[in-house]
């Protein structure tokens, strides 16, 4: 199963304010009553996009027509904290996001996103603020996450370094972001390990 390398993703961007955006906020638990991930896109950030009483759209950035079709998400610290639900990155992907730039990520969310070929890169607060301002001043700004070079660039001329663990970068750029085949390939080593472990 050769996979497509993910060396860079680009698109227009939207900034989602707030620290510690948890997975319940990204996809509320009641939308997890499903046996496939297919329909999750429309429920991304549901409870902040819609007023709980009136059902009307709020002034959340994802409802702002200026940012419609944005595919790069900008966020603050500890993005994706909380549960292990892959429903969270799945709903973002199905909503249309291809990459996330944040100050930091919760680990399980980060790993789940990498496995879905959605790069998550870490930038400084100042760089994210500059990018946010650029995007809010001109929503047509194109933002590129260059996974290969570990830089983020904007069509307006911003260009700064970002970080990502080596293994995740390597997995994305070499097209090994889904490890299943490599895991299955070591069948004999797996069986040897199982025999060695007394409890298996």
């Amino acid at each position: 199963m050769p996979l497509d390398p993910v060396t860079q993703v680009s698109g227009r961007a939207v900034f989602i304010p707030g620290a510690d955006i948890d997975t319940d906020r990204i996809i509320p638990a009641r939308f997890m009553k499903c046996v496939t991930f297919d329909g999750l896109g429309e429920f991304a950030f549901y409870d902040v996009r819609f007023d709980s009483e009136t059902g009307e759209k709020t002034d959340h950035p994802l409802n702002d027509p200026r940012f419609e079709g944005a595919s790069i998400l900008l966020a603050g610290v500890n993005f994706g904290c909380g549960s292990s639900r892959e429903h969270a990155p799945q709903s973002l992907k199905k909503f249309g996001f291809n990459g996330v730039v944040a100050e930091s990520f919760a680990e399980i969310f980060f790993g789940n996103s990498t496995t879905l070929a959605m790069p998550c890169v870490i930038a400084s607060a100042a760089d994210i603020a500059a990018l946010r301002d650029a995007v809010e001043n001109d929503p047509a700004t194109t933002v590129t996450i260059d996974v290969d070079a570990l830089r983020v660039r904007s069509s307006g001329g911003l260009d700064f370094a970002v970080t990502m663990p080596d293994s995740a970068r390597d997995a994305l750029v070499s097209g090994r972001w889904d490890p299943i085949q490599e895991l299955l390939d070591s069948e004999s080593a797996i069986e040897a390990k199982a025999r060695e472990l007394h409890y298996v």
Binding site: S84, N112, S167, L184
Partner: peptide
Amino acid sequence: FGIGTTQVRDVLASQTLALE
């Protein structure tokens, strides 16, 4: 530790995970 659903697939299929 907690894992995502694609990793649940990995464990089901191979009894292993790719981890740091």
